[in-house]
């Protein structure tokens, strides 16, 4: 008959020893992994720093090259800024010219005009004097059927027509010129 008094104790001790060894191993491995991680991160950091330094140098070189081209950049900026205003001006400019030339095309030779304002809306107040009825008739005919190549006449209103002292005829008209819609 075998006497086994410490089986349980030995088994428990063995388990404790195993656990202790496992834990020691885990701590050693953990330490190693941590050290390795530290080395990897530090190396990566160094590499990225070096890359950054090179990139920084390239940025500075490129900046210097851009500064060397500053004359062209100034000219390009000048053009792009001026073209914005110029584009808007040219639109109204063309319309202004078209309105002024249309009114001018209506006026028969020998007409005195007090002075009309060229309005982009196309509403023109035309007043002046004519030496004869024939010329007045021609002016009214021109208003009904304006010469080709100019803007259309939407309508006109005779505000006043009377004789002047010297035998001439004074007139005051309100002329509405048809302005292209995209210009308004």
């Amino acid at each position: 008959m075998d006497i086994d008094l410490a089986t349980k104790t030995i088994s428990r001790m063995r388990q404790t020893q195993m656990a202790k060894r496992l834990l020691d191993k885990a701590i050693i491995w953990g330490g190693l992994i941590l050290a390795l991680t530290l080395i990897v991160i530090a190396s990566l950091n160094l590499w990225v720093s070096r890359v950054n330094k090179t990139l920084n140098q390239r940025v500075e070189v490129t900046k210097k090259q851009i500064v060397a081209q500053s004359k062209i950049e100034t000219q390009q900026l000048y053009l792009s800024t001026k073209l914005v205003s110029f584009g808007n001006l040219i639109k109204t400019h063309e319309l202004h010219q078209a309105v002024a030339q249309t009114v001018f095309s209506l006026i028969p030779n020998g007409t005195s005009i007090k002075g009309f304002k060229v309005a982009e809306t196309g509403m023109i107040n035309l007043s002046g004097s004519l030496p004869s009825w024939q010329l007045l008739n021609q002016l009214l005919t021109n208003l009904k059927q304006p010469p080709p190549g100019y803007l259309e006449i939407k309508g006109y209103k005779i505000k006043q027509i009377n004789f002047s002292g010297g035998g001439g005829i004074n007139f005051n008209l309100e002329v509405e010129i048809k302005v292209p819609p995209n210009n308004l």
């Binding site: 400019h93 202004h96 010219q97 009114v103 005195s112």
Partner: peptide
Amino acid sequence: MQDLENTAPLMKIEEVGL
């Protein structure tokens, strides 16, 4: 007046009297 349209510097006719 027609030529004025294409003459530098850029000009816009504001008022005309004859």
